[in-house]
Amino acid sequence: MVETFIQLMLGGVIAGSVYALIAISLVLIHNGTGVVNFAFGDQLMAGVYVLVFSQHFLGLSLAPAVAIAVVVSGLFGLAIQFLVMAPLRNRPVLIPIVATIAIGAVLREGIRAFMGPNAWPVPFLLSTSPYHIGGVSIVPSDLAILGTSVIIMLCLYAFFEFTKYGQAILAACANPTGALIVGIPAGATTTSIWILSSMLAAIAGIVIAPLTTLTPDIGLIAIKGFAAAVLGGFASLPGAVVGGVLLGIIEAMAGYYISSAMKDIASYAVLVAVIVFRPTGLFNRASIRKV
């Protein structure tokens, strides 16, 4: 009984760490540019496909393939900013948001057309043979997921806390007008946010893909990132991390103790419930523009 519970917690935290990565990127883009990025899930999916492509067709080993996937994804973020977001920056925010929906559809349908609708195998980061510690089985490849996510989050923390660029991005997210007044270039921060979050998309995708099956529709996983971000209040990066882990745990518990169909619905239900009952997120008292 206790073992099952611990096992579920572990699984929840592992999946949740990836949801946290997704939530961080979504919150970054939302706070920094005002756009809710509905293309994120598809960027994530495309990142994994670049990895698979470089492994299967270019014959690269894992490490360079991952590097290529992250770089390509970052360049794609740059392209989104310059080709779509910059020309639309003076339009009402509805238009850029709809544009992200369209970009997501382009990626999804493009990958479906060029790589086929069927699932592709994605390499595990470590071995999949479990160790048993007192009734709880621990799989190295799952730990690799957790480890990678934690390392990435620590890197992000260091970047935002200790570098000038990170501080500038945080400032632009917290108060765009104030950041402009003290001389932080708005264009440069928006561009770096798009690049950074797109690179995070590829990383999150590569980390989570072995747990699911890689098809062009894997991008729907971004909804879990949205749920995590909303759970954390859609405002702060630490909130996004806690929201992600919490969602992972809720999902694992609902999937086991209620029914397996609930596992998929859990994130939707959390998303709706939080927005309806506690729109500031679980932790914030901060202001959300209430009507």
Partner: peptide, 10 residues
């Protein structure tokens, strides 16, 4: 947008 997205899924 987020609620309706989740609603569609549900």
């Amino acid at each position: 947008a987020l609620v309706t997205l989740a609603f569609s899924g549900i």
